[in-house]
Every structure is written in structure tokens, then in C-alpha cells.
Nucleic acid binder design. Sequence first.
DNA 1: CCAACGATGGGT
DNA 2: CCCATCGTTGGA
Length: 201
Amino acid sequence: MKLERSFYERNTLIVARELLGCVLVHITSEGTTKGRIVETEAYLGPEDKAAHSYGGRHTPRMEPLYKTGGFAYVYQLHGHNYCLNVVTQKEDIPQAVLIRAVEPVDSLESMIQRRKIYISKKSKLKNLTNGPSKLCHAMDIDTSLNGIDLCGDELFITLKNGLDSDDEIIATKRIHIDYADEYRDKPWRFLLKGNEFVSRG
DNA sequence: CCAACGATGGGT
DNA sequence: CCCATCGTTGGA
């Protein structure tokens, strides 16, 4: 069943943790893709120096960050990559959870089709969705979805699947935020231990 | 107006 | 490790 508003309007670290095992679903006219979330990162603005909203920065791009929990914040990076965040907390608290990796659920064919031009012949299946930008490409997520309501019917997250009994969650420092001073080493990255679909990090 | 800069990914 | 790549940002 679909996660509702009240799930997202909570403490960001708890949401980041509980999103593990949940399934991200994107329904488009060209088909549906689903991926089981296996890695997340929490960004706790405005105090968090790694967050886009650090210091209360509030630019047009990050507008959705200031909405209440349950909206999508999708931004473009390095010209040709996109990252999907799930906004948390109540309105005007600019915090979010970055979806860093998913395990392909379906359809594998659509994902491969969208990603294959970037996959070399000998690369493994795990390379399909083991990074924030890779999963966006595989699931056809870009900035046209920025600000979309995850409580709607196009892009949403379900509890189905959830954690397996042998899944173990571990927390580590976040990736590629060495500029964040005292926030650099905060253990706000969560992943399923041993899962082959987590990012290289 | 414009230079600097990535919450990355792919190749060595 | 190296670097391609381009929209956003913030300071002239």
C-alpha cells in the first residue's frame, strides 16, 4: 500500500531508515517501473552544511524542499544527471531524503532499455540502479517531476516487500560531501548491509 | 552578465 | 584517480 502524508511528515532520520525496503513506483504512459529502495541519505537543513537548504538558502530550484513532507525534490547535477529526494517534515522545514540506490523490481526490460547506452558489454545488472542518478535514468525520473506529490498516482512509494527478515540496516557517513565541515562525518547514510545494489560509495 | 561549481558516473 | 558536462547560483 502507498505511503501517505503522515509517513513523510516526520523526523528525517527515521524516514530515511524506514524507506529502506519500500518500493519506488513510477507510472508513465510508456509503462511502469518499480525499484526496491536499498540506500538513502538524510539532509537536515537548514543547519546541515551538506544540505542545499543550508543556512536557509531558498532558491527557485529547491522550492519543493520547503513544502510539507511527501513531495519530490528532483534536481539536475553535472549537466546530465538527476537526483530524487523525498521531502520530509512539515512545511518550511527544508529537509529531505536522497534515494541513492534501488534494486530493480520491474520492468527490467524498460530499465535496461533506458540505461543500456551507458552500460558496457561486460557490466553487471547491478549497474542498472546502484546510484542516485542511475536509478533516475532507469526509472525515467527527471526535473519534470520536481515538486510532484508522492501521495499522487504517478510517482509514489509503497510498503509492499518491505524488509526481509535477514535484512540488516547499517549507517555510514554520506557520500561526496567533503565540503560540509563538521557535518561531513554524520552517519546519515542508510543501507541494507551486503545488498549488491547499493552504490559504490 | 558570466565564471565557478557540483548530494555523479564512467572509464583508467 | 581523472574528467566530461551544463543548469543553477551568486557576485560583478
